[in-house]
């Protein structure tokens, strides 16, 4: 079992290494993608600066907390897109029969299908997240919690996207559902949860990986709470297990295709 896990991690890391090697073929694009992503994220802070010059509290968040929230959203999104880019293309992978390649290999189809590519600009998101820690006042504790929740959130967001993408086993094209789910999760993650009320708040904490992935971690970083930390961890485990269950259930319905395609 342990050997199998080690071997799976080795293959996953090799996939990521080779994907980075491909991206490094064009160094200018590689670096500019990262820098422009940092600038893109930074541009949104201007609107918050203007808003906080009028009022010093939005939805219970100070300006520093909003910056941290942005940082958390960026690192979560960045981690997910860097390590699991293909999770966002799962619908296409299923519909074009590209799972065939992974099914004839002695490794986890679930992991192979989501880890064989990287988004370079996501490095910009991760760096941006860490810059926000320095902007809001660096402490070791904050750094470690931020990293922990960034990874946890990235995994939870990926699992959520896999669940939506796996629907393609039943309903052919679900890429629009995946795009919508991703947009909702990312957009809501950058606003203080205090501004949302009623059903919207319920949706953010139950249906979308926003409340437990972004809002609660920010509150834990501000005031440590072990119970909430455990809640976030359990949520992550449950959503990953659910995504594996749905993917495996769907895989039994996989019908492949004879479309011509290439691994690029």
């Amino acid at each position: 079992m342990l050997t199998e896990v080690r071997s799976q991690i080795k293959v996953t890391m090799l996939s990521i290494k080779y994907a980075i090697m491909r991206e490094l073929l064009n160094k200018v694009t590689f670096i500019s993608n990262i820098i422009f992503m940092i600038l893109n994220n930074a541009s949104f802070l201007i609107q918050w600066l203007v808003l906080y010059s009028i009022k010093d509290n939005f939805g219970g968040y100070t300006f520093k907390q909003v910056i941290l929230l942005w940082g958390m959203a960026a690192i979560t999104y960045g981690f997910s897109h860097f390590f699991f880019k293909n999770a966002y293309h799962l619908s296409d992978t299923i519909n074009t029969g590209r799972l065939d390649t992974f099914l004839v290999q002695p490794k986890s189809v679930y992991l192979q299908a989501i880890t064989s590519d990287v988004t370079v600009s996501a490095i910009g998101d991760i760096l941006y997240g860490y810059i926000m820690i320095f902007v809001t006042g660096f402490t070791i504790e904050k750094f470690l919690l931020f990293t922990f929740f960034g990874i946890l959130g990235g995994i939870s967001l990926t699992a959520f996207i896999i669940i939506l993408g796996s629907l393609s086993f039943w309903f052919s094209r679900t890429d629009i559902i995946v795009d919508t789910g991703e947009s909702l999760a990312v957009n809501f993650a950058t606003y203080p949860d205090g501004i949302f009320k009623g059903i919207v708040k319920w949706i953010l904490y139950i249906a979308l990986p926003v409340g437990i992935v972004n809002y609660i971690p920010i509150s834990i970083i501000s005031k440590f709470n072990i119970k909430l930390l455990l809640l976030c961890s359990i949520y992550c485990i449950l959503i990953v297990l659910l995504s594996i269950f749905i993917f495996k259930k769907g895989l039994k319905r996989y019908s492949s295709t004879n479309l011509m395609n290439a691994r690029v």
Binding site: Y18, T101, V264
Partner: peptide
Amino acid sequence: GQKEQLWTHL
């Protein structure tokens, strides 16, 4: 023959 398994940039 119709599906490539190799990484084309490697």
